[in-house]
């Protein structure tokens, strides 16, 4: 299953009441097939805009998005998106949620169900297939959303702070789950996050972005051995990497803070 993602010189401006706002400027990055890359940046660095552009939900940008060398426009079957906000359908059970994209494609009901049941197992929700999202914890709902995205068998998995709403412990454990799934499916993955530990725990490479306009500041390879688990946070190498990233990120976060705090306004 190929699935190399290339983002080439993406710029995006938004019209605001205070004039044009440059959200992204000349962002280029490559996620080779089967690799796990994280993008980290301060609030307001345009990382969610990048998520929207790559996923095809944000129109009118400059630059190109390429999958396996071919430029793509708009939403694409090869890209699966996991959103930051609560995104499970509350009127469907876990199993029905996961079957949703398969159903939409007109796949036979039995086949849908079989594949969905495998995914329920993969994300560790055995026994909850017939539960409704309201009966589950936030972490379980987000796992349902991830399984639903995986059900469509995208070549590239694109995630926008999928664990942002969860507490630190759940986040670390879900990170383990995600790594286990990633090992199994060997999927090209681009994760947007604001958590340094999450980025280091999961990635082959961490891309640090600047505060507005969002540019790439630095790409830091994470050469920690695989397979990893959340226990890696204890190691000295992990600590050094977190330190390096924080050094870069701190400057940007301070710049963001300085620009938003004194006036007491933010967008």
């Amino acid at each position: 299953m190929p699935g190399a993602l290339v983002v080439e010189n993406i710029s995006k401006r938004f019209a605001t009441s205070a004039g044009a706002l440059a959200a992204l400027e000349g962002v280029s990055l490559a996620v080779p097939q089967g690799r796990f890359v994280s993008i980290i940046g301060p609030s307001g660095c345009g990382k969610s805009t990048l998520f929207g552009v790559v996923g095809g939900l944000v129109p009118d940008y400059e630059g190109r998005v390429l999958i396996d060398g071919a430029p793509v426009h708009g939403t694409h079957d090869d890209i699966g998106m996991v959103f930051q906000e609560e995104s499970t359908f509350p009127w469907l059970t876990v199993l029905e949620n996961i079957m949703f994209p398969l159903d939409a494609r007109g796949m036979a009901r039995n086949e849908c169900r079989e594949r969905a049941e495998r995914l329920v197992h993969l994300v560790g929700l055995d026994g909850f297939g017939n539960s409704y999202p309201a009966e589950l914890s936030g972490g379980m709902r987000q796992r349902t959303a991830i399984a639903r995205t995986l059900a469509a068998e995208p070549k590239i998995l694109l995630m926008d702070e999928p664990f942002a709403a969860l507490d630190e412990q759940t986040r670390l454990l879900l990170g383990d789950k995600l790594l286990q799934i990633w090992r199994e499916l060997a999927q090209t993955t681009l994760l947007i996050t604001h958590s340094i530990t999450e980025a280091v725990q999961l990635s082959d490479e961490v891309v640090v972005m600047t505060y507005r306009p969002g540019r790439i500041k630095r790409v830091i390879p994470i050469d920690l051995p695989r397979p990893r688990s959340s226990e890696i946070v204890e190691s000295a190498a992990f600590g050094r990497l977190v330190g390096t990233i924080w050094h870069d990120l701190r400057e940007e976060a301070l710049r963001g803070l300085a620009q938003t705090e004194p006036q007491g306004v933010s967008h």
Partner: peptide, 14 residues
């Protein structure tokens, strides 16, 4: 209707 639900549908090419 939460916009994210509509985005989920669009991401699935509905």
């Amino acid at each position: 209707v939460p916009p994210v639900l509509i985005n989920v549908g669009r991401s699935f090419h509905l």
